[in-house]
Simulated scan of single mutants.
Amino acid sequence: MKTYFQLLTAALILLVASCGQKDELAAKKEELESKKKEAAALRVSIEELEKNIAEMDPDFARENRKSILITTKEAKLGQFDHFVEVTGSVLSKKNVSISGEVSGRVQEVMAVEGMQVKAGQPLARIDAESIQRNIEEVEKQLELASTIFEKQERLWNQQIGTELQFLEAKNRKETLEKNLAGLKTQESRTVIRAPFSGTVETVLIRLGELVQPGTPMFQFVGDSDLFIEADVSERYIGVVSRGDSVEITFPSINETLRTKVSAVGAIINPNNRTFKVEVFLPRMANVKPNMISVLRIKDYESENAVTVPNYLILQDTRGDYVFVVEDGHSVKRYVERGRTYRDITEIKDGLSGNEVLVDKGFREVGDGFNVNIAQQ
């Protein structure tokens, strides 16, 4: 029985202690809430006072303004180059249309589109049967005329016969020789040959087709004497000259080379207000006619230029400006722009090249703002 009452007493003691702890915790929570409300009210009062004082004292406003977290970028002093960038096309001075020189039916076509051929290699053959018959006939006539001339010449040497007979025999023989040479030339032209080494771009005839002198048969492009032609805006007249250095990039094959301007056009195209520029192109295995290229022609350079990224330059009613970091503050510095190439701008005046510029966060700062530079 005694043990029962002891256990009951202990349980009651624990219950009372637990209730006491809960009451104490609730009291502390109430006190915390009260303090928070007091702190919030006090913070509002402080902010209101700071605002009122800042309106009356600008120095106080600058000193007590919150620091803005930023990153920085240094202005650069060094070489600055500006380029004119235009798109050009690879052309060939040996881009020709090969036509037939004699009439006849196409007997054989040896070339196919895209075929690489050497100079003099046969491309097609025209039926030469009628020419061959004429050659055979003239050869027989020439054989007889040669025999008559030889006999007449022996008689003339022996003072027999007249000079007129000798001259007629000679003239007959020489005329037939010229006729035979002309027919053989026509026969040779029945075989269409490559005028120089290159590529058969287009085949314009078919087997069995009847062609006449002047009929286009092949579009042929030589594999040498390539150049690039581009249209340049007329505002660069006097800037782009013959002999200027040019950097050429071929996007399709990801290759770059440096060459020179070989010719500058003297006429402005009234449709797009541009003039032609021709650039010498050395022989390259992967470069083909009509390939697109990008030309970078240097038109300006400065050895000691101050440059900054474009996006850091802002503008107001007074002009262009950037923010520089001085003694933990952002300072508004007005600048004079020079030329811009891609994402870099030359600064003509306003910076010396050793300034630290506000980078990330440059749109959140103002003149005289406190700044805190983040670790990069």
Rank of each mutant, 00 (worst) to 15 (best):
P195W: 11
Q107W: 15
V261F: 06
E108I: 00
L226D: 04
D225W: 00
L123P: 02
R339Y: 10
E336I: 12
G161P: 04
G319M: 11
K22C: 11
E187M: 10
Q159M: 04
Q107A: 15
V200T: 06
L357A: 09
S302P: 00
E187I: 00
E201D: 14
V102Q: 02
V335Q: 02
E30T: 09
S103P: 10
R273N: 04
E303H: 02
R339S: 02
T147C: 01
D231S: 08
K332H: 02
I13L: 14
I68M: 08
E163F: 10
Q121S: 09
R154F: 11
N310C: 08
L351P: 12
I373V: 14
K184P: 02
K178V: 02
D359P: 00
Q116Y: 11
Q376M: 12
K94E: 07
E137R: 15
I313N: 08
F369V: 07
K288Y: 09
L91N: 09
E336L: 13
E336S: 15
K360W: 13
L351K: 06
E38D: 14
I53D: 07
V102F: 03
K51M: 01
S67W: 04
R342E: 15
V96D: 02
N179D: 05
K35P: 00
D81K: 05
L295I: 02
E63G: 01
E24G: 12
Q158D: 14
L144G: 11
Q79W: 12
K2F: 12
G104H: 13
R318C: 03
A285C: 00
E139W: 01
N271Y: 15
